[in-house]
Each structure stands twice: as structure tokens, then as C-alpha cells.
């Protein structure tokens, strides 16, 4: 049994997979998405090529943990989203509320993505997942 199987039910995993599919279909410029545990274990992913869901999950965990520390240190309140601007695209990271354990949603976007659309789609995905988890 993997770590995330101990923490998430099969139905919750199915919901996550469904949401990732919907996210990818809704926004064509989103080229990848990963849901992982807050301590860096991969739960579900839609990635192409040689990208490693395991590595991205660990890195997302570190980035969000450091992001939260920076927000605390700067007295800027609760950490919301992290946007990484790269020469060939953007990476969005945000936490997903869950009654038992917070999850992380990482979204990879192509360079020509309209930032607002990608962010809106990712946040909608996060909020929808949060609503489903709060009912289970």
C-alpha cells in the first residue's frame, strides 16, 4: 500500500483523477498537472514525456513549505498561490483543502497561456476538490 493510499480513499483518488482530466480539457494551454501530498508524495498526475511526478511532487512540497515560511516571515498572512515564471511557461502551485490532510495542486502551463485563465481554471479545480472532500 502506498503512502497516499493510506491517507486517501479510492473514491477520493477517483475524484482527483476526474478533476485533473477536466482541468486539462478545459484549458488547452495547461500541459500538465499533479496532485501530491503536502509532504511530497505523488497522488495523481497528467504529465507528458519524461517528466517525473515523483520529483515534481517533492519539489512542490518544498516550494510551498518555503512559500508559507516567507509569508509568515513577511507578515503577509496566509500563503495562497505560488506562480513560477519560466522562459517556456508558467508553473502554478496551490494547496487543496482536505479535512484530514492538505494536498498540493501543481499546474504546468505553456508560455502563451493567458495567466488569468490558467489561474482561474486551477483555482476552480482546487475549490471543487475542496468541496468534494469536505462532503466525504
Amino acid at each position: 500500500m502506498t503512502v497516499h493510499e493510506q491517507c486517501l480513499s479510492r473514491s477520493e483518488e477517483a475524484v482527483i483523477n476526474h478533476h485533473l482530466d477536466a482541468l486539462m480539457q478545459q484549458e488547452q494551454e495547461i500541459c500538465g498537472a499533479v496532485v501530491s501530498t503536502v509532504d511530497g508524495f505523488h497522488v495523481a498526475a497528467r504529465l507528458t514525456g519524461s517528466l517525473s511526478a515523483e520529483k515534481l511532487s517533492a519539489m512542490a512540497s518544498s516550494l510551498l513549505a518555503i512559500n508559507e515560511a516567507v509569508c509568515r516571515e513577511s507578515s503577509m498572512g496566509e500563503c495562497r498561490d505560488l506562480v513560477v515564471e519560466a522562459s517556456q511557461g508558467r508553473i502554478l502551485l496551490m494547496d487543496v483543502p482536505h479535512p484530514a490532510q492538505k494536498l498540493i495542486l501543481t499546474v504546468l502551463c505553456r508560455a502563451k497561456t493567458t495567466m488569468g485563465k490558467a489561474l482561474w481554471s486551477a483555482r476552480s479545480c482546487r475549490e471543487s476538490l475542496g468541496r468534494v472532500f469536505s462532503r466525504t
Binding site: 503536502v38 509532504d39 510551498l64 490532510q101 492538505k102
Partner: peptide, 9 residues
């Protein structure tokens, strides 16, 4: 400074 998160493992 610490960056502890919930341990699931």
C-alpha cells in the same frame, strides 16, 4: 525558520 508540514509517511 522551519518548514515543517504534516507527515503522511
Amino acid at each position: 525558520l522551519c518548514t515543517d508540514v504534516q507527515n503522511t509517511d
